[in-house]
C-alpha cells in the first residue's frame, strides 16, 4: 500500500514536471522543472531496486548536466525571455507537433498495454547492485567501458576547444 503510494507520487512528480519543462513559457522555469524530473526519475529507480543507477542519475544529471544547461540558459538568453513559437507558421508547427506527439503517445501506450510481457514469477532481492555492476563492467563489458571512457575524454576536450573564444 505504501509502495503504491510512493510510486504514484514519484510518477506524478515526473510527469507533471516534464509537462512543466515542455509547456512553461520561461526558460528558467523549464530548467528548474527538469531538476524535479531528474529527482523523480531517481526515485523511480530506487523503487526498481537500482540503487547505484539512482545515485549516478543524481550525480551526473543533477550535478553535471543540469548545471551545464542552467549555465547555457544564463549565458545565451534573457532570463525573462519568452520562448514560444509565434505567427502563423509557428501555430501550424505547434499543431503538427502536438498531433505527432499525441500519435506517438497513443502508439506507445497501445503497444505497452496490449503486449503480454514475459516477466519472471519470482522477485530477486539483493542488498545492493553495485557489486554486480562492477563485476559486469570489468568482465563482459570491459571494451564498451573503455570506449565510453575514451569517448567522454575526447568529448570534453573537444567541447573545451569549441567553446573557447577566438
Amino acid at each position: 500500500m505504501l509502495f503504491d503510494f510512493v510510486f504514484y507520487m514519484f510518477a506524478v512528480i515526473v510527469i507533471v514536471s516534464a509537462m512543466g519543462v515542455v509547456f512553461s513559457k520561461k526558460m528558467m522555469y523549464s530548467a528548474f522543472s527538469l531538476l524535479f524530473t531528474f529527482f523523480g526519475m531517481a526515485g523511480l529507480y530506487v523503487l526498481l531496486s537500482a540503487d547505484f543507477v539512482a545515485v549516478t542519475q543524481i550525480m551526473v544529471y543533477v550535478g553535471g548536466i543540469l548545471v551545464l544547461i542552467v549555465f547555457g540558459v544564463m549565458l545565451t538568453s534573457k532570463i525573462t525571455g519568452v520562448d514560444i513559437k509565434t505567427g502563423t507558421i509557428g501555430k501550424i508547427q505547434l499543431t503538427v507537433g502536438a498531433i505527432t506527439s499525441v500519435i506517438v503517445a497513443i502508439i506507445l501506450l497501445y503497444t505497452y498495454l496490449s503486449v503480454e510481457w514475459m516477466t519472471s514469477q519470482f522477485q530477486v532481492e539483493v542488498p545492493t547492485t553495485t557489486h554486480f555492476i562492477g563485476f559486469g563492467l570489468f568482465t563482459e563489458y570491459l571494451l564498451p567501458f573503455f570506449v565510453a571512457a575514451i569517448l567522454i575524454l575526447i568529448a570534453f576536450i573537444g567541447a573545451a576547444k569549441i567553446a573557447r573564444r577566438k
Binding site: I65, I69, G72, V104
Partner: peptide, 30 residues
C-alpha cells in the same frame, strides 16, 4: 512503461515545438 511512454511523447513535443536550441536539448534529455 506508461510513465516512460508519457515522458517520451512529452520529450518529442518539446523537441518539435520549441525554437530555442537549449529547450530542444531539454526535450532530448526527457
Amino acid at each position: 512503461l506508461v510513465v516512460s511512454a508519457l515522458l517520451f511523447s512529452l520529450g518529442v513535443f518539446g523537441i518539435v515545438s520549441r525554437k530555442n536550441s537549449i529547450l530542444v536539448l531539454m526535450g532530448l534529455e526527457l
